[in-house]
Design a binder for these strands. Structure first.
Lengths: 379, 379
DNA sequence: CTGAAAGCGCTAACAA
DNA sequence: TTGTTAGCGCTTTCAG
């Protein structure tokens, strides 16, 4: 007996010949789904009635409703989301675009977005770009096709003129189809562009981290993870510089080390600085991942943290609190960032009054065990 | 001048009065997207021609194609994915259902799925359940509506009769609409059910971990993270027991400690065991997160790892290699697991011959610094 | 090579 | 209270 078949035989379907119960059992065979018409026929009512019962937005006799619901159950019917979408109803979806979901900060942002979206009945489409800006472009267009209610772009970028122009195009392009561009942890665009921005106090966190080291007495602080033009790196670097300036400590080019936000960059930068005999008593790593590499670099040189050299990171990834010593770092409320991004854009969409389209969450230093006053001796 | 407006004025639209360029600038105002008809009108051709040019699957004059493409550019037109889907074309989507994307193992699986899906032109819908099985049900139905090509359920579960029945229903229900249930890191269902299963050698890894400790000379090994009925926990526990049996070491109930797969569970279990004066020289934590808690528990009791007590984890999360000492653990190829899940289901769908519907990836112990022979003294 | 028109599955007037 | 029907935007025969 056919698995999905109803109790009593169904009269010949409209068109396509009757598949057997197991629809897609064959490789990729497009199954014959039951449609609202099947349900209507089975229940002996019209499609409109079925629609009404299912939407539950219109008066329907108790008995009719029962008949319909029974038919639905018998046929294991679910509505076709695409048809609903086309007809104007249908669940909205939010698109989330990020480099790599395995990076802790991104995963947290993603979790925040997804939770808030789900809470408000939206679906969440996730696309990763592995840092490929070309793919980002393709993805945004794809999302425009998908009628995504919003497209949330996550994470810092190479901040160029070309980039700004592309984003402006994205913003307008999405706006023109009723969608919305959201920049999360990314610098804002021109004020007149239709986009929502959710930032965190990137520079302030770096300022705080540096000030923490300075107030401990450090004067030679190695900054690791500078990246010319990368928005996040630039913000952190300028927070570092700003604090130095406020403490009347001269900046030194040899203390600002280039490097990506990866563990390996931290390792290499510290090794090089050591090899070049650059004097420093503390390391400010632009991310916790970089700090991990720096830690290894220090250790392989026989330097203890924090006794010989202090180390501070940025991001406060869960791992930070598990290291030995526990890593002092800058806490960024990533999950909250994601949640806020979703909230703002959905508030605006749901017509909630006073929905802002620009927010900045604050960051703060979390002092743990990897920072201490500089050792009195040399270095 | 209207942003999306064409060069020369367009004759009055079919129905709704002409919105201005900026479509959705108002909160959630459903914008007037340009449709294929707009493009056709603008290009002075029929919609069929536009469709053909865009699909590029039919001979079209060079000049006609040019006209169409120009119109597309002028109107910044993108097709409506829902309409395409309804008409039978359209990008497929894969649904990924997991407890929490911030958990390292899940994030890695997710990354694997997403990458493989993207590589093969599919979109990836992510839903989290926070361990709520009720929500899992709702999500699967939602995915059925969405016409997801596959629904990938990730991670261990409470393995009950009720669960098995629900999964059977899922499997058949998805199959009946041409979709496919995929179980990733979850026990398989009955053989005759339409589902794809991608497992890893859960029990084998635990056996290896335990054997590693046994061969170092440990005989009293605390297992932390037992959970009656939880499939993953059960598998690991039985690997532990199996190794003990093979080494002719008697199992002891007081050595098997209950607890969730969370850091806190590890901490509590070790504290309790210590308080109860249970003798042990090694700890096998059911996950690396549990190992983290166990490590803290050992340390606060003044016990050194591995000098006083050896510690081994499971999962090989990135953090494992950053701990002091570096954590010995069982490596699970999570990303590969996700990639495989996507690959199998898409192979089958794309009609690639010989696509299996059941695979098991292997695991292996990664020996690092947290395990050593037991100390000669007491304990 | 191009166009007209019939669906795809659902919703929402409009009628009855 | 229920049914009929005209779209929603796109693809795809079938004619020309």
């Amino acid at each position: 007996m056919a698995t999905t078949g109803p109790g009593k035989p169904v009269s010949a379907s409209t068109a396509r010949g009757g598949h057997e119960g197991h629809g897609g059992s064959g490789a990729g065979a497009p199954a014959r789904r039951s449609t609202i018409r099947d349900v209507a026929r089975q229940a002996g009512v019209s499609v409109a009635t079925v629609s009404r019962v299912l939407a539950d937005n219109y008066p329907v006799t108790h008995t009719t409703r029962a008949k319909v619901l029974r038919a639905v159950r018998q046929l294991d019917y679910v509505a076709n989301a695409h048809a609903k979408a086309l007809a104007g109803t249908g669940v909205e979806t939010i698109a989330l675009v990020l480099d790599d979901i395995t990076w802790s900060a991104f995963a947290q942002i993603g979790a925040g977005v997804e939770q808030e979206a789900a809470r408000r009945g939206r679906l969440c489409l996730v696309c990763t770009t592995q840092g490929d800006r070309q793919r980002e472009l393709a993805v945004v267009n794809l999302m425009r096709e998908q009628h995504a209610a919003a497209v949330i772009l996550v994470g810092g970028i190479q901040y160029t003129t070309e980039y700004r122009e592309r984003m402006s195009r994205f913003a307008r392009s999405l706006d023109s189809v009723g969608s919305r561009l959201v920049l999360c942890g990314r610098p804002p665009l021109a004020d007149d562009l239709p986009a929502t921005v959710v930032e965190y106090d990137n520079e302030g966190g770096a300022y705080g981290a540096t000030a923490h080291l300075l107030s401990l007495g450090h004067r030679r602080i190695l900054f690791v993870g500078a990246q010319e033009g990368q928005s996040t790196a630039d913000g952190r670097l300028s927070g570092y510089r700003g604090a130095l300036a406020d403490y009347r400590v001269a900046a030194a080019p040899e203390l600002e080390r280039e490097g990506l936000f990866l563990r390996d960059a931290g390792l290499r930068a510290v090794r090089e600085a050591l090899r070049e005999q650059v004097a420093f008593t503390a390391v400010f790593a632009a991310t916790d991942m970089v700090a991990l590499g720096a830690l290894e670099g220090l250790r392989e040189a026989g330097l203890r943290v924090p006794d010989d050299v202090s180390l501070i990171g940025y991001d406060d990834i869960p791992m930070a609190n598990e290291l030995t010593p526990r890593l002092t770092t800058v806490h960024v409320p990533y999950q909250e960032l994601g949640r806020t991004a979703a909230r703002l854009v959905l508030d605006r969409r749901d017509g909630v009054g006073g929905a802002e389209d620009r927010t900045r969450l604050s960051t703060h230093v979390v002092v743990r065990g990897s920072t201490a006053p500089p050792a009195p001796g040399p270095r």
